[in-house]
Amino acid sequence: MNTTEHDKVALITGSSHGIGLELTRRLLSEGFQVVALNRSAFPEDDPLIRESLERRRLRVHRADLSDFEGLRRALGAIKASEEKIDVLFNNAGGSVPELTFSRQGRELHFELQTVAPYVIAMELRGLLRNGALKTVVNTSSNAFDMMRRFDPDALERPASFKQLFGPYAASKLALSLWTRELAPLLERDGIRIRSVDPGPNNTLRKGKRSGLPFYVEPLMRFFFPPPSQGASRLYEAAFGASRELSGVYLRKDRARDLPFREHGPRVLEKVRSIHEREFAAG
């Protein structure tokens, strides 16, 4: 896709609903071109989305990000068709109600929310180098504040399952930990990477079973703000006061300390090994 020097290109995963959709709409309205990497389709009744698709300012690639075969095809198509990426938002995610494994045999939250963002960032590193902003924003969570133990070697096949505060929280912590560890390497290319907690948002989807504890769903439905709030926090993480920082975990636009930082090198080693031995070699 030909872009002018002044065009900004954002790639957003999980951009067809919730926080990702609100972020997509905001960036399109500000003149960005958006490359979407989604499992599901965009809503058909959104005028801005429809117009952007027709004008090719919104370009869609479909894949289940937890399935390496489909993800490999989609990333190959992106690398073949795009000249640059200014900012990458690794936003895709979600929670499942019971212990579930990916096609590769790893726990699904870990595959989707820890491994896939690393794979995407590393595979698109060349396009990020070509961009002007050279920024990666990973969507994390404060759910890991409730964790009392963290074992990197249990991420792939946990012995037990707890909704929200089990594998989901562990996968988000692992994401922020490898973000912190990877930052010095990416800075050699001028790329800055951050993880951010989007805060509480009502991202419930009608007809879809969530992985939330029973007492959280009514709170989310009636008291949590709309996903536009989370989108604003991702936007600020990319373009706001912290835009010069790298490796940080942001909550309410401020850098916060991560728990279990001593496990960061081990987490990075795990995702790097999976990428090199399974994805890149596939």
Rank of each mutant, 00 (worst) to 15 (best):
N2E: 14
T3D: 13
T3C: 13
K8Y: 05
G14P: 02
G18Q: 02
G20R: 00
E22N: 09
L28D: 00
E30T: 10
R39I: 07
D45T: 12
D46G: 01
E51K: 09
R55C: 02
A63W: 01
D64L: 02
L71N: 02
A74C: 02
E83H: 04
I85W: 05
D86Y: 02
V87Q: 06
N90G: 08
N90C: 07
T100S: 12
T100G: 08
F110R: 00
E111V: 08
L112S: 12
Q113R: 10
T114Y: 06
V115W: 00
P117G: 00
Y118R: 03
R125K: 13
R125H: 14
K134D: 11
V136A: 13
T139P: 10
F144I: 05
R149N: 14
P152G: 07
E156S: 08
E156A: 07
F161D: 04
A170R: 12
A174Y: 03
L175I: 06
L177N: 06
L182Y: 06
P184A: 03
L185D: 12
L186I: 11
L186V: 11
R188T: 10
V196Q: 08
P198Y: 11
T203S: 04
K206D: 14
L212V: 09
L212R: 06
M220S: 11
F222Y: 13
F223P: 02
F223H: 11
P226R: 12
S228Q: 14
A231L: 11
G240I: 08
S242M: 12
R243Y: 09
R243N: 10
V248L: 06
Y249R: 05
L258T: 09
S273T: 15
E276W: 05
G282H: 08
